[in-house]
Write a protein that binds this DNA or RNA. Structure first.
Length: 320
DNA sequence: AAATGCTACAACCGCACTCGG
DNA sequence: GCCGAGTGCGGTTGTAGCATT
C-alpha cells in the first residue's frame, strides 16, 4: 500500500522500522518457507533482516502468510464479525480464529474503520433527530433514523425495523430512540448484547414484527433487560427498572443482571440468555424467542450453534 | 490544478502472559 | 520466587491514495 520510507533505515546499526520493502518481504518469505517458524529474533537475524523479531512476526502473520485471504470482506464474513464481536468484544484474535485467512489486525481495522463509523453515524443521526416528539413526523420513514446505515453496503432485505401497522409513529419513535439513546453507553468495546439480544441481527437493527409486539431487550448501566412493548394496551411502552428486569409475557421471564466490569460474567450471562431461549419448548412464543428465530435465519451459518458456547464456535471457511 | 478532507490499513507501541534458567 | 527473553494481543498512530471542494 504505502511505499517504504527511505529514511526508515537508520544510519547507525539500529533496527529498521517502518514500512517493509519488497526486498525485505522476499527475504522473510524465503526464510520462512525454507526454514519454518522458529524463534523470531533468530528469524530476523538469520534471514538477514535489520528488523526486530517482533516486527518480522507481525509482517509474516499480517501480510506474508501464504494462507491469508486478501481483499474485501464478504457479506458473510462481515456479518459473522459483527455477531462474534457482540459475543466476544474486542477479542480480535479469537474472532480472527473463526475467520480463516483473516488476521486479527485486519478484522480490527475493518471494525474500527467501517463498522464503528456506521454506528457513529447511526448515533449522530439520532442526535440530530432530537426528541421523540420532534421526530414524530419523520419516524414513519425509517431511513430518517439511518438504521440501515449501520451496514450501508447491505441491501435492504428486511433489516429495517418493522412495526406493527397499528403502532403509532410516536410509539415507534419512542421505542427506537430509547434504544438508540443507549448506544453511547454501549460504545465501549461495543459489547452490546445486540446480536444475542435482538437489537442488531449482525447486519443492523433487527426489530421484527414479533419482537416489537411483545419483547425487546435493552441494556443500560450494565444491566441487560427487556423492553416490553405493547404487552398491555396496543402502543404502551413499558420500560422496566434497571436493577432487575422482567418481561410481562406469559411464557418468558427474563431477569438478568450482569457485571459489566467482568467480561466473562457478562458473556456468560449473554450465553445464558441465549441458551435459556434455546431450551424453551414453546415454539409459539412471541418476543425474544421469535427474535432469535428471526436471527437464526439471517446467516447461512448455524448461528444457533454459534451462540450456544463461544468456545464451541466452528471454524468457518468461506474461501470456497 | 491545487488544496483539503477522508478512508483504509500497515505497522508500531505497550502491556500481559508464558516459560526456561 | 525472580528475572529476562520471547510471544501474543489490543490500542493507537502514520500515511498513501482517493474523493471532494
Amino acid at each position: 500500500m504505502r511505499k517504504p520510507e527511505p529514511s526508515a533505515k537508520n544510519s547507525n546499526n539500529k533496527l529498521r522500522k517502518g514500512l517493509w520493502s519488497p526486498e525485505e518481504d522476499d527475504k522473510l518469505m524465503n526464510y520462512m518457507l525454507n526454514n519454518g517458524q522458529g524463534c523470531w529474533s533468530d528469524v530476523a537475524r538469520n534471514a538477514g533482516l535489520e528488523r526486530c523479531g517482533k516486527s518480522c512476526r507481525l509482517r509474516w502473520i499480517n501480510y506474508l502468510r501464504p494462507d491469508l485471504k486478501r481483499g474485501a470482506f464478504s457479506l458473510q464474513e462481515e456479518e459473522l464479525i459483527i455477531h462474534l464481536h457482540s459475543l466476544l468484544g474486542n477479542r480480535w484474535s479469537q474472532i480472527a480464529a473463526r475467520l480463516p485467512g483473516r488476521t486479527d489486525n485486519e478484522i480490527k481495522n475493518f471494525w474500527n474503520s467501517t463498522i464503528k463509523k456506521r454506528l457513529k453515524n447511526l448515533s449522530s443521526t439520532n442526535t440530530n433527530t432530537g426528541s421523540p416528539n420532534a421526530s414524530e413526523s419523520s419516524i414513519s420513514e425509517p431511513k430518517d433514523l439511518n438504521m440501515r446505515g449501520l451496514i450501508s453496503t447491505h441491501e435492504q432485505n428486511g433489516f429495517m425495523p418493522v412495526f406493527n401497522s397499528s403502532s403509532s409513529p410516536s410509539i415507534q419513535a419512542t421505542f427506537l430512540n430509547n434504544i438508540i439513546d443507549r448506544l453511547p453507553t454501549l460504545e465501549h468495546g461495543l459489547n452490546m448484547p445486540t446480536a444475542a439480544g435482538g437489537f442488531f441481527n449482525g447486519t443492523g437493527p433487527c426489530f421484527t414484527q414479533s419482537g416489537v409486539d411483545s419483547n425487546g431487550f435493552y441494556f443500560e448501566n450494565g444491566v441487560f433487560g427487556s423492553v416490553n412493548i405493547g404487552a398491555g394496551a396496543e402502543g404502551d411502552l413499558f420500560v422496566p427498572p434497571l436493577e432487575s428486569v422482567s418481561s410481562a409475557t406469559d411464557n418468558l421471564k427474563v431477569e438478568i443482571t450482569c457485571n459489566r466490569n467482568t467480561n466473562s460474567n457478562y458473556f456468560d450471562d449473554l450465553n445464558g440468555i441465549v441458551n435459556n431461549n434455546h431450551r424453551s419448548e414453546n415454539k409459539g412464543g412471541s418476543g425474544v424467542e421469535n427474535l432469535f428465530q428471526e436471527e437464526l435465519r439471517m446467516g447461512e451459518w448455524d448461528l444457533e450453534e454459534l451462540m450456544k458456547d463461544v468456545s464451541s464456535f466452528p471454524f468457518l471457511d468461506f474461501s470456497s
